[in-house]
Design a protein around this nucleic acid. Structure first.
Length: 432
DNA sequence: TTTTATT
């Protein structure tokens, strides 16, 4: 069916509305297609804008790559289509991150510097939206050995003009490391500046939250919303650090929409977070007897809300921040009428029991981790200018809205718990 | 000073 030396291609920069049937005509002109798969998010099913393609013949793959790679841009895309061997086709780690470049250096300058060590597949200086160099680059060699040789010779070997320290040459971050980096950025964004603050805030918020969830135990302690968010972040980081994976929750999972769930648990999102891995292997989470039943309920539905919510959410963070920047810019450009954009049906959520002091921007921050926020509005009393303690957040897709609901409904802030649900359509529930 | 994505 396919040749033994067939190449699996990675196809990038494809519009998210194109499915296999739409893509097929573009590629079959180069030969018989063995397999073509659009890549979708494991949990949300969201189209990731890329695909894998294997031709029956190796030659077809080579022809398609040379004819299409970076040669045309599909409708709605800003960058040209990518057609190249999938990562799974390459052997070993051969991609380098190069830091501490001067801002003036071009792709060609960097290429010249690395050429002596082997054949370079890709060489790109990272640039911001305005085209300014970020002072770093990615260089991909054909083999791991070549990359290693470049590290050995170049790392720390010199300080380029305009750089603040000596040249950095190392293997590029893995996907896992990038995830961690993104979460640290989220933590910073939430105002947690030092590791000490972060640990302290997270621990106290976390223990209070756990106590609150234990039967027969009540805590009236005030939870700083940012410390509470810190707790979420910390648990994520701990889980990732320990396993390289999101830990499977051992504590009760709670379907926020479940009708048969006891109210005390239904409003408790904290156990839906992964079991934190404590320092030195100590886990502060008590395993609760009712946890298993709750978990099974979820799996029976085929939906695992926790892994769905957070990996998906953090996968979107890198998109979420540019989005936030966009919002800020828009406010400057048209301060009079920043549009209240509403997303499509299923993308808009209603949030009640917000802390009195929460503003649009704080609510935005709280929901950014779940996707592209296109609008975040706290409702304010006209007369007093005081928050009415509720608001609306709109995402650009329903999966983000569901992730936000799943993770944040019932989230404890102070003595209250957030109510987070889909915004009702305008015409519904208006009997009077 | 870490990217537009890799089942």
């Amino acid at each position: 069916m396919k040749e033994a030396d067939a190449i699996k291609l990675f196809i990038g920069q494809i519009p998210r509305n194109l499915e296999e049937k739409d893509l097929k005509p573009i590629f079959e002109q180069f030969g018989k297609i063995y397999e073509l798969t659009v890549i979708k998010d494991k949990y949300t099913g969201m189209h990731k804008g890329c695909a894998f393609l294997t031709y029956c013949a190796r030659e077809s793959a080579l022809k398609a790559q040379s004819a299409l790679h970076e040669q045309k841009t599909l409708p709605g895309m800003n960058r040209p289509i990518q057609v190249k061997p999938a990562d799974s086709e390459s052997r070993g780690d051969r991609k380098l991150f190069v830091g501490m470049l001067g801002k003036q250096q071009t792709d060609e300058d960097v290429r010249k510097m690395f050429e002596p060590f082997g054949s370079i597949d890709e060489c790109t200086v990272l640039r911001g939206p305005d085209g300014t160099s970020k002072g770093c680059a990615f260089v991909k060699f054909q083999t791991h050995a070549e990359a290693q040789a470049a590290i050995n010779s170049l790392h720390g070997s010199r300080t380029l003009p305009g750089a603040s320290s000596s040249l950095v040459v190392k293997f590029a971050d893995t996907e896992k490391e990038r995830g961690l980096r993104r979460m640290q950025q989220v933590a910073n964004q939430l105002g947690m500046f030092s590791p000490m603050t972060l640990q302290f805030g997270a621990y106290s918020a976390y223990t209070q939250a756990v106590r609150k969830c234990s039967p027969g135990c009540s805590s009236n302690a005030y939870l700083n919303p940012m410390a509470t968010m810190a707790a979420v972040q910390m648990q994520q980081m701990a889980a990732l650090n320990a396993n390289g994976l999101i830990a499977t929750p051992i504590t009760p999972i709670t379907p926020s929409s479940g009708t048969s769930t006891p109210p005390t648990i239904a409003a408790t999102p904290v156990p839906a977070l992964p079991a934190p891995i404590g320092v030195n292997g100590y886990s502060p989470v008590p395993t609760q007897a009712n946890g298993q039943a709750a978990s099974e309920t979820i799996y029976a539905n085929g939906v695992h809300p926790y892994p769905a919510a957070y990996p998906a959410a953090y996968g979107l963070v890198s998109q979420a921040f540019p989005q936030q920047a966009t919002i800020v810019t828009q406010q400057h450009q048209q301060p009079q009428q920043q549009q209240q954009r509403e997303g499509p049906e299923g993308c808009n959520i209603f949030i009640y029991h917000l802390p009195q002091e929460f503003t649009d921007s704080e609510m935005l921050q709280m929901f950014l981790p779940f996707g592209n926020v296109i609008s975040a509005k706290v409702f304010v009393d006209r007369a007093t200018n005081q928050s009415k303690c509720f608001g609306f957040v709109s995402f650009d897709n329903p999966a983000s809205a569901q992730a936000a609901i799943q993770a944040m409904n019932g989230f404890q802030i102070g003595m209250k718990r957030l109510k987070v649900q889909l915004k009702r359509p305008k015409d519904a529930n208006r009997p009077y």
